[in-house]
Design a protein around this nucleic acid. Sequence first.
DNA 1: ACGTTTGTGGGTAAAAGTGGGTAGATTTCC
DNA 2: GGAAATCTACCCACTTTTACCCACAAACGT
Lengths: 153, 153
Amino acid sequence: MDLIGNSFTGSYHYTIDAKGRVNIPAKMRKALNPVNDRTFVATRGSDPCIILYPVEVWRQIEEKLINLSKRRALHRYYTRNFVRHAEALQYDQQGRVALPAGLIRYAGIEKDAEIVGMIDHIEIWEPGRLEECDRQYEDRQDELDSISDEIFA
Amino acid sequence: MDLIGNSFTGSYHYTIDAKGRVNIPAKMRKALNPVNDRTFVATRGSDPCIILYPVEVWRQIEEKLINLSKRRALHRYYTRNFVRHAEALQYDQQGRVALPAGLIRYAGIEKDAEIVGMIDHIEIWEPGRLEECDRQYEDRQDELDSISDEIFA
DNA sequence: ACGTTTGTGGGTAAAAGTGGGTAGATTTCC
DNA sequence: GGAAATCTACCCACTTTTACCCACAAACGT
């Protein structure tokens, strides 16, 4: 066993099959607490990718959303847009999930997908967009360094 | 098991048939606690859409309404307007409910309907109005971000 | 090298979504 | 008051989608 606690790490390249299914990397399946019953909640990321939360993590988000004011239209809109694109996905005996068509479109995924661990959740990217993201931030090394300073102070 | 606890999530597009019936998405039917006996309470939303509460959730609302002052006209008016448009709907063996004509008119629904999960209740929108809603809030990203900050603090 | 795990493809039975028929109840109208 | 019209719950039929299963090849670990 060489997984880091119960956190999601690493990056894996997979292909989407004709039925819209992607494999969940075996290491991530092992890292998912059994209480989640093999299921993740998929939704839109703040970045243009799909996010997979273990249900236990999603629960915490839901609790905060439900405590938002129901009186304020903006708060209702916020909740709606968050929940609207969320769907529970249970992976099959082969370890695959069927990604909703809407989320595949949002992430711009065609055939290939890069699955990236983000400690408490997982991201699924169209490979080109991930590279684009790298290019976008490469000239902001100073700011990145100062984040490093905060962390390793 | 492929539902998120007992919460309503995701967004589904359906058509209203000639008899004024809409399908309740299978995942939402499964998420509805059996104590509700396949029935929701439909009413007007604060937004221009139809809201479906599980009866157990509606009961909690009723209890709060009943404790409002019966002496004050404004309170009576508030209760009246809340309850006036509420109607219990039980879905049939195919999983469909017949929406009251008044609520369909209120939501501006013609042929298509977008059913949106809101964790503890369901919203039914005319698709165009949902988009309109998106457009209305897109230039208030700062405020939405500050809600995010509150939640993910 | 060989058994085991992992990733990928595809077939099939069940479930979901959609349309429409019909009988019993309710309402309307004369 | 009673017949005609309407409404509504329930049923059946059909199509599409999804979930579940089996199979196999490549990669991995020992």
